[in-house]
Write a protein that binds this DNA or RNA. Structure first.
Lengths: 189, 189
DNA sequence: GTCTATAGATAGATAGAC
DNA sequence: GTCTATCTATCTATAGAC
């Protein structure tokens, strides 16, 4: 499955890494190919050998987070118990966010990325399925607020300096606890 | 205090409203002056009569949210009781977010705005003071996670379609409850 | 206050040498 | 695979007519 010498070469990978870093800092629209090229010490033309457009770079970056997310939804949708379903979605969501911290932050925060994705039916349905699984069709206003706060919170995991140094293994259970607590809207202590 | 004819004229206001809408949708970097001009049916040059640069538009948009936020911090810092202080900050934060839904979403979410603000000492200290007031110097990792989730949640108030239709008066107490509950890290039910 | 016209810079993208 | 050179489009911003 793997050749002795990297089959894809590392140039592509370097472009992706630099782009991800810059996209999450400056936003997609705020990142020029020149900035990416400068960061890895090549010219713009060198990047165009790897990717045909800037959007293609973005698509490549969002591919794994999106794939992971879709898998989580499919896993959850096979579960009939609605409580278990929500658990699967939440833990899967957190795993995805942790596995692709910067990627998911771009995916969920960046205006350009969000807007581009809104034109993709797959993604629009993805949001819908997520809401359906975590909220259900008869969610109260309060439950919606809680849902929005949880999603917003997860949005910040990849960018907050307060969490940057924390390992997945310490962050995961904490996020689980907090998000789970938020979503279980218990009327009072 | 008010002349019979609007003293500032509404042109400036129209630019600000259109910009705010577009900035929050496409991001600052993703919004061109042409887009703003098109939306209000004038030319770019007409905008340059009101504002000298795009950054000046952004600054004008962020002025009130930032002023409100600073006032909240000052109010809170006068309170000696640390629990009361946190309450003042949280409710003030929520009021600010509600009063300037799109403005605060740009302020907190947009990569360009955030980056620009990071070069302003006032804003960097603002973040620090906010953390100091809500977290204190000896915050545990869990408390930091909870803080980040709350801030991330508030980030979404201005952009989430789920909350767009909800009035301040119904959203405020709900956000208060949720955020307060998150920050009061009670070990277990 | 709004327009046309345009400068000057930089964006994304392509062609072709090496 | 990376370079230089260049194209075109668009951007911010300015100047000056109306």
């Amino acid at each position: 499955m793997s050749s002795p010498q990297s089959p894809r070469g590392s140039a592509r990978q370097r472009v992706l890494e630099a782009s991800l870093e810059l996209f999450s800092q400056h936003g997609v629209a705020g990142t020029s190919l020149q900035m990416i090229a400068d960061r890895i010490g090549v010219t713009k033309a060198a990047i165009y050998f790897q990717f045909r457009t800037k959007e293609e770079i973005l698509a490549a970056l969002l591919e794994s987070p999106l794939t992971d997310l879709l898998q989580v939804l499919e896993d959850a949708e096979e579960e009939t118990n609605s409580v278990r379903r929500a658990e699967i979605v939440l833990s899967g969501l957190i795993d995805t966010v942790l596995a692709h911290r910067r990627g998911t932050s771009v995916l969920m925060r960046d205006p350009g990325a969000v807007l581009a994705l809104k034109q993709s039916q797959t993604f629009v349905r993805l949001r819908g399925r997520l809401e359906e699984l975590l909220l259900g069709p008869r969610a109260t206003i309060e439950e919606r607020v809680r849902f929005v706060v949880v999603m917003g919170g997860l949005t910040q995991v990849g960018v907050s300096p307060l969490l940057a140094e924390l390992d997945d293994s310490v962050l995961r259970p904490l996020l689980q606890d907090v998000c789970c607590q938020i979503l279980e809207s218990h009327p009072r202590g």
